[in-house]
Computed example of a mutant assay.
Amino acid sequence: MNSLGFDKAPSATRVVVAMSGGVDSSVVAAMLAEQGYDVIGVTLQLYDQGEVAARKGACCAGQDIYDARTVADKVGIPHYVLDYESKFRDAVVEEFADSYARGETPIPCVMCNKTVKFRDLLATARELGADCLATGHYVQRAMGTEGAELLRGRDPGRDQSYFLFSTTRDQLDYLRFPLGHLDKAATRREAERLGLIVKDKPDSQDICFVPDGDYARIVTKLRPDTAQAGEIVDIDGTVLGRHDGIIHYTVGQRRGLGIAAAEPLYVVRLEPNRRRVVVGPKSALGRDLVHLREVNWLTDLKAGDSRRVSVKLRSAQMPTPATVIAGVDGAAVVQLDTPQPGIAPGQAGVFYDGDRLLGGGWIARTELQPELAA
């Protein structure tokens, strides 16, 4: 077996590497080329080239395409740039705006992995006759009793498994993650050893198409209704103030409410149909039932089955003990051992057994069981 798990020589193994122009994917391409694999670099153009000059901190922009091509030339591999601007806009940017319009807090990185990268680019890799698609994600892939498994990255500070919960079993069979056993410092040392120009390049922003952080500007341009003014009310419906659009709020938010109160207030929920922001004390944030939609399983769990897991409800949150119950039509319910604050619809509930990712889904709504609410 070679280092990618194929029973043939590296030179007989074709690998498409998704090259974003950053240090991680550049190191993947260079490492695999050094090991003798038949490597093809592919970079996705996600923005109009006339608009990317000022997008500092974005990925898949003009400078990134140049950097990816420069790395490919240095390590001696072919490099292609694919125009995915329309695919990215339809699958990621438009959905991002729709999610905010529904009063959710979306995760566009997950949608990009689910659609543009692991659906469209993966299909292109197959068309190119590749044995696998390799990326610079900090996750690990291993073979287990149920086939290929997705594991957390070895470095907890860099682990990106939360953002890959929608990866299907068929996709996981085809994907490879050569950096999963490294931390970022080790990756940069590899970039320096390999003489790559990106060795000191900063990481891109989380939301690549909002490099200035002003996501409200993009959403209101696409969905003007999200900028309509409305009321800020307490949990009993008493009007406490006004807001300039629900786009500016998310569940669990404390700062920026513009309300004077005897105790700190937090956003408890958003009611987009009524253009209302509901606020309350921190004690009103706790929820212990989380309803999920579009759940993707990387383990064998049928409708009605339950399993003890640890679950992450935000990317930066530590996992918390819970029981997940599989439903029908992609639904599931997570019963948390202890109520958690600030669980936002539009984020993801991702299940783990130790380091193994079992699956996950989008948070549709939350509840607090009556006996705990009393």
Rank of each mutant, 00 (worst) to 15 (best):
M1G: 02
L4H: 02
Q45M: 15
G50D: 15
A54W: 09
K56S: 06
A58H: 09
C59Y: 12
C60V: 07
Y66W: 11
S86K: 15
S86T: 12
A91S: 14
A91G: 03
V92D: 03
C109F: 08
V110E: 10
V110H: 04
F118Y: 10
D131R: 03
D131P: 10
M143R: 05
G144Y: 05
T145Y: 06
E146F: 06
Q160R: 05
S166A: 15
D170A: 06
L172I: 08
D173K: 04
T187G: 00
R189N: 03
E192A: 13
E192L: 13
L194C: 02
I207Q: 04
R217M: 11
A227P: 09
D236N: 06
H243Q: 04
A261C: 10
R269N: 05
N273K: 08
R274G: 00
A284T: 12
L285K: 01
R287E: 08
R293N: 14
E294M: 08
D300E: 07
K302Q: 13
R307L: 12
S310P: 00
R314G: 11
M318Q: 15
M318G: 06
P319R: 03
T320M: 08
T320K: 12
T323P: 07
I325R: 14
T338W: 09
L358A: 03
G361Y: 13
Q369M: 07
P370V: 11
A374G: 12
